[in-house]
Amino acid sequence: MSTTTITDEQLETMQIEDGKSKLRKWLNMNFRIEMTDGRVLIGVFLCTDRDANVILGACSEYLKGVDGETEEPRVLGLVMVPGRHIVSIQLDDTTPPQMYSYDE
């Protein structure tokens, strides 16, 4: 019985580390966040917290046009997106590999 509990705890700590380190890996990568009102923000993922409030740097705002993303973006700079307004998050995996090496 007792051994199982320990394993559980261990597992839990591993998961915590796993969640945080996954997030940490994504830092400084490009995020594409769609908000509840349909706008799309593309910027560098800089910071987040438990409520999924996300701070993006060098952010541009795209209006969802009929024909995709052809419209001119609006440069916003540093923005904070409240977690409750996030519909979806996408990650750009074309970011150069040196970003990955940062955390490893």
Binding site: K20, R50, A52, I86, S88, I89
Partner: peptide, 18 residues
């Protein structure tokens, strides 16, 4: 050129560890 990968559910799962 971007290659977008959806991470919505992962992201919301991971932040619970904070």
């Amino acid at each position: 050129i971007y290659n977008w990968v959806d991470i919505t559910s992962d992201f919301f799962k991971h932040i619970q560890d904070l």
